[in-house]
Design a protein around this nucleic acid. Structure first.
Length: 269
DNA sequence: AGTCACCTGATT
DNA sequence: AATCAGGTGACT
C-alpha cells in the first residue's frame, strides 16, 4: 500500500492517537523482519517508554520514544501502524502489538510480512537514513534540485523517480501518475530530459503528492478501513487497455526494473 | 541495470 | 495452478 502519501497519513493519525502515550508492554508476534535485531529484543527495548513524536522520512515511520530511542518502521508493501481502542483486540494480520498505559494499543499490521521494525538510538537515525533522498514535499525540493538530480542519472526516468536515494517517497503509482501529468514517457533517460520537461515534472510530482496526501488523510481517518483506501483518481496506474482521458489513446503496460509501468503512448512523449 | 528473494493473499 | 501486487536489498 504505502507510498509517501499513505505513510504521511499514517503518521498524522498516529500523532493524534499515540503521542504522549506510554508503552507498558510490547510483543512482536511473528518473525517479521527485525534483522539484525530479534523480535524479542525489539519488544523488550520499546517497553516502558513514552511516545514523544512521530516523524516520516520517505516511506519510513519514525516513532520517537522517551530516553532517546526511536522505533523505526518500514511498512514496505502492506504494513500499517495504528492505534486501537482496546489492547485485547487482535486484528487478523497484526504482527506487533504495543500496549499503551490507557488500555489502548498501537498495532503493526502487515499481511505480507515484508515490513521491517527496528529500535535504535534517536541520535543514530539520521545517519541510518542518510542514503534516503530529498523529501519532495519539503521546501528544499525545487526545480533546480530535480534538474541537478536528473543530470546525474542514466536511468529511465520512471526508475529514477522510484529510486529512494534521489527522491524519498515516490513509488510505482505516483511515479507513473506524475509522469502522466508531466506528459513524459517513462522510458526517457533522466539525464536527457530538457529543463522545461524537468520543470513540468517537478510541478507534477508536487501536485500529485499533495493531492494524494489530502486523499490519503481522508481515507485513513478510520484505521480499519485501510483496505478501501483506493480512492485517488488514477489516470494510468493499472489502467492498461483503457482509454486515456486526455487523448483517448489506449493505456499501455510495460516492464521497467521488474515492475509494471503504465503510461499513455499518445500524450506521454 | 537487471533478477531474485523476502511473504501472503487476491485474481486469473 | 499460475501470476500478480503500491517495496527494498542483496545478489549478479
Amino acid at each position: 500500500m504505502p507510498e509517501l502519501p499513505e505513510v504521511e497519513a499514517v503518521c498524522r493519525r498516529l500523532r493524534k492517537d499515540a503521542v504522549g502515550s506510554r508503552i507498558i508492554a510490547a510483543r512482536v508476534m511473528r518473525p517479521i523482519q527485525t534483522k539484525p535485531q530479534t523480535p524479542a529484543h525489539v519488544a523488550k527495548r520499546v517497553a516502558n517508554h513514552t511516545i514523544d513524536a512521530v516523524r516520516r522520512r520517505g516511506k519510513n515511520i519514525l516513532v520517537d520514544l522517551s530516553d532517546g530511542l526511536t522505533l523505526h518502521v518500514h511498512p514496505r508493501m502492506t504494513g500499517n501502524l495504528y492505534v486501537i481502542a482496546d489492547h485485547r483486540l487482535r486484528p487478523v494480520a497484526a504482527r506487533a502489538w504495543f500496549e499503551l498505559q490507557d488500555g489502548r494499543a498501537m498495532i503493526y499490521e502487515d499481511r505480507r510480512v515484508l515490513g521491517r521494525i527496528q529500535v535504535h538510538p534517536t541520535s543514530e537515525m539520521e545517519e541510518r537514513l542518510e542514503k534516503t533522498g530529498v523529501e519532495p514535499l519539503e521546501p528544499g525540493f525545487t526545480e533546480e534540485t530535480l534538474i541537478a538530480l536528473a543530470r546525474k542519472s542514466g536511468q529511465p526516468v520512471k526508475v529514477f523517480l522510484m529510486d529512494q536515494r534521489h527522491l524519498a517517497g515516490l513509488g510505482n503509482i505516483y511515479a507513473a501518475e506524475a509522469l502522466f501529468e508531466a506528459k513524459i514517457n517513462p522510458r526517457r533517460v533522466a539525464r536527457q530530459l530538457s529543463r522545461a520537461r524537468l520543470k513540468r515534472l517537478h510541478a507534477a510530482i508536487v501536485g500529485v503528492l499533495e493531492r494524494a496526501v489530502q486523499s490519503a488523510c481522508i481515507a485513513y481517518m478510520h484505521p480499519d478501513r485501510f483496505q478501501e483506501a483506493e480512492w485517488f483518481p488514477v489516470e494510468v496506474y493499472d489502467r492498461a487497455g483503457e482509454r486515456c482521458r486526455r487523448c483517448s489513446k489506449t493505456i499501455r503496460r510495460i516492464e521497467q526494473g521488474g515492475r509494471s509501468t503504465y503510461f499513455c503512448p499518445g500524450c506521454q512523449t
